[in-house]
Simulated scan of single mutants.
Amino acid sequence: MDYDFTFVVTGATVDDQDAIDALRETCDALLARAGGVDLLSVSWPGDCAVQAALEAASAIRATVPRLRVCRLDRDLVGIHEIAERTGRSRQNVAQWVAGARKARGAPFPAPEGTVGRSQAWLWSEVNHWLAAHGLDDGAAHPTREEMAQIDVALAGRISLTFRFATTPGFKDGRQRVIDELRSRHISRFLTLLAGFDGTTDEHGNHVLVVADGREPARGVMECVARFPHDAVLVTDTDRFTVTVLSSRGPARSGRVVPVPATATVGEWLRLVRDHPRAAFAMETGDRRTEEPARIQWQMAIAA
Rank of each mutant, 00 (worst) to 15 (best):
W123H: 06
Y3C: 01
H185N: 13
I178W: 05
A132D: 13
G198K: 10
G134Y: 06
C27E: 14
R184S: 14
C70Y: 02
T284M: 11
A19I: 01
T243C: 05
G116N: 14
F227M: 07
T243Q: 06
T13S: 13
R104G: 15
A225S: 14
T235L: 00
A278I: 01
A231K: 02
V42C: 06
V272R: 03
A217K: 09
M282C: 11
L154T: 08
I150G: 06
M282G: 09
C223N: 08
P250V: 12
D230V: 00
V37H: 01
A34Y: 02
D2W: 06
R270F: 01
D274N: 04
W96M: 01
L54D: 10
D16P: 01
I186T: 15
A62C: 11
E146M: 04
L154C: 08
D236E: 13
V272N: 04
F240P: 00
V209C: 13
M1P: 08
A148D: 13
L40M: 08
Q95D: 15
L40R: 08
L181W: 12
D38C: 04
R101N: 11
F162K: 01
G11N: 07
R255S: 12
S253Y: 03
I301A: 12
Q149G: 08
V14A: 07
G105S: 09
A251D: 13
Q91S: 10
D2S: 14
D73Y: 03
N205C: 13
T262D: 14
I295S: 14
D151S: 09
S187E: 14
V265N: 11
A100G: 12
W123T: 03
F5Q: 09
A57Y: 02
L76R: 01
V8D: 11
F170N: 05
A59E: 13
Q298D: 15
W123K: 02
T166K: 08
P107H: 11
A57E: 05
S187R: 10
G11A: 10
G35P: 09
R117C: 04
D47P: 00
V232H: 07
D236K: 03
L30E: 11
V242A: 04
A59D: 15
A120W: 09
L193V: 13
G254K: 07
E55V: 02
P45Q: 14
G78H: 06
G249L: 02
G134Q: 05
R117L: 11
D137Q: 04
E112H: 13
Q17H: 15
T241N: 02
R74N: 07
T237A: 13
F280H: 09
D2T: 12
R24Y: 14
D236I: 08
A251V: 02
A300K: 03
W123I: 02
Q175Y: 10
L192Y: 11
V224A: 14
V244L: 05
A263C: 05
T63L: 14
T241K: 00
D16A: 00
S89Q: 04
A53H: 03
V209D: 05
I20T: 15
A302S: 14
V8R: 12
A29F: 07
R270A: 13
I158H: 03
V265I: 12
V224D: 06
V115G: 09
V9M: 04
V265K: 06
A98G: 05
G35Y: 03
A278D: 15
A100L: 12
Q175E: 15
A94V: 00
S58Q: 09
D212I: 03
R248F: 01
E215C: 00
T235K: 01
L72V: 10
V209R: 09
P142D: 13
I158Q: 03
G105A: 11
R255A: 15
G266N: 05
S43I: 01
